[in-house]
Amino acid sequence: MARLLDVIREELDLTGTKEGCGEGECGACSVFLDGKLVNSCLVPAAQAQGAELRTIEGVADGEQLHGVQAAFLECGGAQCGICTPGMVMAAVDLLRRCPQPDEAQIRDGLAGNLCRCTGYVKIVDSVASAAKRAVAVAEQALQAGAGANP
């Protein structure tokens, strides 16, 4: 029986989603299924019938990186890169649930995704930086809005 991961990688040719363990331990295959973060290696393809799927290829807005991706690039959150797509998905999910996480919340939020290169420090810093940046962007937008409508 094909897994959602097989369909994503082989049928849809979206190879940004990775297979690290095939048993739901490493999180390299993380995708959003109807907005919910799942390990696509554990989901039978049939279960995705009619659902909305979002993979790493759908995180950036064209050439414009998502704030989490930009932060990973800037803070050194990616090394070998094989866990990175899944890690980015988990971080996006965390910041949606918890927009201003402290370090313990970040560590807890990413605990389903294994990274063998970084010791997680730079990944944690990337997520914290993305959260901070999101606040700054929101404040700028607010101020710009206030300026336009006195």
Binding site: T15, I56, L65, F72
Partner: peptide, 23 residues
């Protein structure tokens, strides 16, 4: 100086090409 990772953009977007990604 901490120059950003040369292949970093490909890695954070999932575009980096690993062996199993080859068709």
């Amino acid at each position: 100086h901490s120059r950003p990772r040369k292949e970093g953009r490909a890695k954070v977007t999932g575009a980096a090409h690993y062996t199993d990604d080859v068709r």
